[in-house]
Structures are given as C-alpha cells and as structure tokens.
Amino acid sequence: MIKLFGYAMDIGEQMLISGAEVHRVEESINRMCQAIGAVRVDVFIITSSMVVTIHTNDGNTYTQTRRVTNINFDFQKLHCLNDLSREICEKGLTAQEIEKKLAEVKEGKRFPLWVEVICYAVIAGAFTLFFGGNTIEALISLFIGTVVRICLFFSEKIISNKIFNKFFATVIITLSAFLAVKFSWIDNVDKVIIGNIMTLIPGIGLTNAIRDLFTGDSIAGLLRSIEAVLTALAIAAGYFLVTVLGGVLL
C-alpha cells in the first residue's frame, strides 16, 4: 500500500515535470490513490512542490511530499504516464509491474541534439517570415537559430539557471542580428530578433499562468506569472545590453 502510494507520487511528479497542468496532476493522483484503496485523499500541488495525504481503511494516514525543480515539456512522456495512471485505475497493477513501466517511461527517448538544432533553426526562420520578414532575413534567422541552440547546449552544461541561459541566448541573437545589419545583409534587426526569440519568450508560460489563475490554482498561477515576467525581463535585458554596447562599439 505505502509502496503503491509512493509510485502514485512518482507518476504525479513525472507528469508535473513533463508539463501537465496542476489540475490534471491533482486529478490523476486523486484517482490513483482511490484505486489503491485510500478512503480520503488530500492533494496540494503547486508548480514546485507536491503534498499528498491519504487515509486508509484501517485508520492510518500517510503523507508524502515531492520537490519539483525544473519543468521540461515532454508530451511523449506525459502520454505514457497518462496511460500508466489510467491502467492503475482500471486494472490495478502490482507494485512490480508499475515499477517496471515507470522505469520504461523515465528512460523514454527524446529527439537527438541535431534534430533540436534543426527545430530551433526552422522555428526562427518560420517566425521571421510569419512576422513579415523577407527571404534573406529568414535565412539569417535560420542560421542564428542553429548557432543559438548549439551555444545553449554548452551553456546549459555549465550553468543550470534557465533564466540566465535565456539572457545569454538573447545576447547572442541580438549581437548576430546587429552584425548582419553592420555587414548590410539586412536593413532591420526587428524581424530576425523576434523570429529567434520565439523559442525563448515565455508566451506559453504567460498563457498557462493566466489559465491556472482562472481555474483556481492561484499559487501555481502566480508562481508561473512571476517566472514569465522574470524571463521576459532577462530577455529584454540581454537585448538592451547589446543595443547600448553595440551603439557605442559598432
């Protein structure tokens, strides 16, 4: 029973990490705990922490907490976890079965780095066109996107702070865009920068934050909004730094 409870927590934790909404995780944990025989389940989840207490038939109560540090969108993993939690509710798997499946899900593959590099490049190019850039601007965006992902790969190894990494990436983007103008390949930096910044900007974060606030997960929503604002500030700071220094040097 306690072991199964632990696994339910693990599944919830992994769901939260792979980008599920707070509401969904709470619901899944609730269902799983009821399926393994809890009479009452109290779930409290915010984006960075989970607290769950269950009451059992024989009058015992158990509480477990999990600290969640970084959220990394991975919808393939979320899909598998969702299936797993559904199976637990419907079929009632044994501890060994859950352990095996959970290990499989945790190991789940992601796209290799070179695919991500291409994704960054294509996103940057596509959104430069989207916001009204011409073909040359899109090609330059494509190139900068490639450089940014490779730089991020190294900076993420050294520094784990996500917001600082975004600041660093913005500096690279803005610097390259200004250099492209300097060599008069393009006339205006705006479209190239916006295209590239789409991969960094917390637009999704902001929308999700407001969604959490509306659904009633106020604390999770507030935490997410603050994170979105800070990220936006870091990006603006990176842009500003290069613009000011570039005005002096170039």
Binding site: R110, E116, Y120, M198
Partner: peptide
C-alpha cells in the same frame, strides 16, 4: 513553426 515546437515538446 508549430511542427518545430511540437518536436521540441517531443
């Protein structure tokens, strides 16, 4: 762009 983001989200 959506395909690109979809792939980043695995």
């Amino acid at each position: 762009g959506s395909i690109g983001f979809g792939m980043l989200f695995n």
